[in-house]
Design a protein around this nucleic acid. Structure first.
Lengths: 250, 250
DNA sequence: CAAAGTTGTCTATCTTTCTAGACAACTATC
DNA sequence: GATAGTTGTCTAGAAAGATAGACAACTTTG
């Protein structure tokens, strides 16, 4: 009879192998396991996390399915790589530019859906449209063929009635605004959070269920302070870091 | 014989009720379910997500255990509230100040551990200490008795040999640096990501396993550009939003 | 070439999660 | 007060997750 630690794993809704996989992902992400390194063996992982070897194997299999590691029979499991993109956030942040500092394959913005509707009160307030209607535009953005983020844009319907069509044809918020006579705008505020992706976001960003999204809520306005756009973006946290601009205050 | 949809739920490591709970949490967070609203009934939730009513119940139970909703027999389940703190990030970002705009109960910084050691190469590079040693300080921060974030600070060991003791006694990075003769410093860069919490982070932040942390990696330097501190902070994403400062460029 | 160490695969069993159904307890409405 | 609708609790069984052990296939080291 083998000693059976009750383990008393709390029922947290996460399978053991998923928790192990996430822990290993962190070690890969922060460099404790560098590209090319060999992971601990399946036996040592199963001891470290107090699970059966098969459970540890499943964690590795999940990472391998993502292309993060590769197992080689007889020799071990090795870290392949961990590519993340940087998305710059600053006063002049625009959706379509400045993804991955060096402008790689142009960030491709697509309009998925648009509608004119009553905005939620907090958004109406921020856009300063008391009682008026708003244009809501749903977009998705990808770079190098890989989906990066989905966005929900809100505009004053009275002021910018044709913004959705402009965005769809120009493939850019900046260009659509320019077509409506707005030459310049600046980022006023950005708030960043993180949460699990919804099933809808998961399918748009080709993420598994339970994946994480970075959520930014931002307000853009004209240089004189008139609110223009309220934008909620959701980035695939696996693939994106937000790089925050700190202008020198010389 | 009831129709049995195979459901073909992929084995993603997340239990069904956890995915449902996270989906509901999103709806509460973004206002589709406002404070005081009644959630859909257990029966309608079970239909919507194609699970048994008991599974839907478990999702609700998880949210209730967090204090996010409350069930009342005979009448329904209601949204209680969703309190988040704002942590400001800008050029003058300091750890101990500016949590929750109005300065609530002082953000309390505690030193958990410190050591002098060889820094990882990328950190050595950013701190501009080629081959030298670094002081690593692990901290935790709470406000109103609730843990908010954990941090890993790196300093040049040659230049700031006693920084850890200073932080422990002063309870503040700014004060400890002042004691070492550094009157002012500025934030140079901040990169934000998100991932699952490790088990260690989970216990320090009193989060369940699998919870999400917002990760900021930041470099502070003296006004003349000399690197001072490299800081990795992990915030409990359930409780914190990062509020990014966009200074007006007048 | 031998030995030790590693991943790949198979079978069996136990535990946890999910499904299914029934009914009680309570609330709101007519 | 009757009725419909809601959450709370119980039992039972099916499906999925995790454990346990054995051995094959392969690589690296000596």
């Amino acid at each position: 009879m083998t000693e059976r630690l009750p383990a008393a794993r709390v029922r947290n809704g996460y399978s053991a192998w998923r928790l192990i996989a996430e822990e290993l992902r962190v070690e890969i992400g922060d460099g404790r396991l560098a590209v090319g390194d060999r992971l601990p063996t399946e036996n040592s992982l199963s001891q470290r996390f107090s699970v059966n070897r098969h459970t540890a194997r499943q964690a590795i299999a999940a990472l391998a399915a993502e292309g993060l590691v590769e197992s080689r029979r007889g020799s071990g499991t090795f870290v392949l790589g961990d590519t993340v993109r940087l998305h710059r956030i600053g006063v002049r942040t625009r959706l379509s530019s400045s993804l991955h500092e060096q402008r790689s394959a142009a960030a491709d913005v697509r309009v998925l859906h648009s509608a004119v509707e009553e905005p939620p009160v907090d958004i109406a307030e921020r856009l300063n449209i008391g009682g008026g209607r708003a244009v809501r535009v749903e977009t998705s953005r990808s770079a190098d063929g890989q989906p990066i983020s989905v966005g929900t844009h809100w505009f004053d319907a009275e002021r910018l009635p044709n913004i959705a069509e402009g965005m769809a044809s120009a493939g850019s918020v900046t260009a659509a605004l320019a077509a409506s006579g707005i030459k310049d705008y600046v980022r006023v505020s950005t708030v960043v959070g993180a949460r699990h992706a919804t099933s809808m976001e998961g399918s748009l960003l080709s993420l598994g269920p339970g994946a994480i999204v970075l959520v930014t809520e931002a307000l853009d306005s004209e240089p004189d302070g008139t609110p223009l756009q309220y934008l909620v973006s959701r980035f695939a946290a696996q693939r994106v870091r937000l790089d925050i601009e700190h202008p020198r205050t010389d």
